[in-house]
Write a protein that binds this DNA or RNA. Structure first.
Lengths: 207, 207
DNA sequence: ACTAGATAAGTAATCATTTACTTTCGTGCT
DNA sequence: AGCACGAAAGTAAATGATTACTTATCTAGT
């Protein structure tokens, strides 16, 4: 259990390659990144990439799969937030905060995600399913149960979930992809406003 | 006045190159498109690209500038929609419909837009300013005037505009970039639901 | 001494771009 | 009207640089 899976000897070079390649693929995409760039940044010989990975594609796939695996804790936190007995405002704020935080402590993620979709990589389907679809499914199931309790108005739960995801994600995506976009001064204010608009939009009015 | 601006002789090849390059850049990005691919699709000699454009970069820039110019009518329609005396519901529905329609009759646009941002092209700044920023500015000015009239609640107009843009755009972006995303069956229903949620979210409640 | 880690020095293919050349065609002169 | 001329349209073939990837060799730990 204490020995690594892939090699007996501790090399470290594999991790250096993955780290370098991840930031380069995130910055310039698959086509925009060369194996030479990866080797230079990782400070290893270019041929060493092919000792650890079958090809540039294989390295890219390993990185995306790793990112998909790393999504699990975030989605688990989002799921738990939706299961508490807290008020919808608290739940939605917590979900929005988690989304902001996850983008902030891994800015590469969204760029890798959108690059993989645009460049049409075969793993982008899994990437999409594990991120957007799972998020929407969880949120729409939360919305549906609150709707059945009469807390929310009767609206299409999937469209409603997409609306909330859109408000928060589009904001984060624009900030990640277009550095010229006006940075927000007050993160909490943005979260409060977004949750406020959405919640007032779906809350059932008392007669 | 009857003579074309760029060349006396009718060539047609320039337009064929632009058309081919536009769909290729939209499909595979700048780095993912080769001059050979462009020449093959346009059915012209590869060297002819360099008779009409200074470089691959120059061709790409010409295409983005053209797309930016073509944005004007859309933004003008959006501006006019916001100036009518119609109800906010009608105005917001019209804006959402225009956004859906513009993406539907030019699916290349959003892909070019996001690719330019991700690949960090120098013109993406202008692209972003002409599209997202202008849209948000117009919408937030509409929201501000309705807020002053007491129709909308007192919320940050720019954040509110971004929320609406996010709901509609994120939906369109996901559908454009991830073909595996579930296509919507009823466009009008989606628009109505989005506008409904947003409008109820920002409308001032009567006491 | 064996084996995995690492590398220098390649490989053929492909990249954007250029060169040197031919063809096409509008325009001004006779 | 005819014709020479120059410029633009178009092309085949080559340019050097860069691409992903390989091979042959060396090094270090057990």
């Amino acid at each position: 259990m204490s020995t690594p899976l892939h090699s007996i000897r501790a090399s470290g070079s594999r991790d250096k390659i993955i780290a370098a390649a991840t930031s380069l693929f995130a910055a310039h995409g698959f086509k925009g990144t060369t194996t030479r760039m990866i080797a230079d940044l990782a400070q290893v010989n270019e041929a060493l990439i092919y000792r650890h990975f079958p090809s540039k594609e294989g390295l890219y796939a390993a990185i995306i799969e790793k990112k998909i695996e790393k999504l699990a804790p975030l989605l688990e936190r989002l799921r738990r937030a939706a299961e508490t007995s807290e008020s919808p405002q608290t739940v939605l704020r917590e979900i929005a905060r988690e989304m902001f935080a996850s983008v902030e402590d891994d800015p590469q993620f969204l760029r890798l995600f959108y690059f993989s979709g645009l460049e049409g990589h075969s793993l982008s389907r899994m990437f999409f399913e594990a991120y957007i679809e799972t998020f929407n499914r969880n949120l729409s199931s939360y919305i549906l149960s609150r709707t059945r309790e009469g807390v929310f108005r009767a609206l299409d739960p999937m469209l409603t979930a997409r609306a909330f995801a859109g408000i928060v994600l589009h904001y984060l995506v624009v900030q990640t992809i277009f550095p010229e976009a006006e940075r927000l001064r007050d993160r909490e204010k943005a979260i409060d406003t977004f949750v406020d608009i959405f919640l007032q939009g779906i809350l059932r009015r008392l007669p």
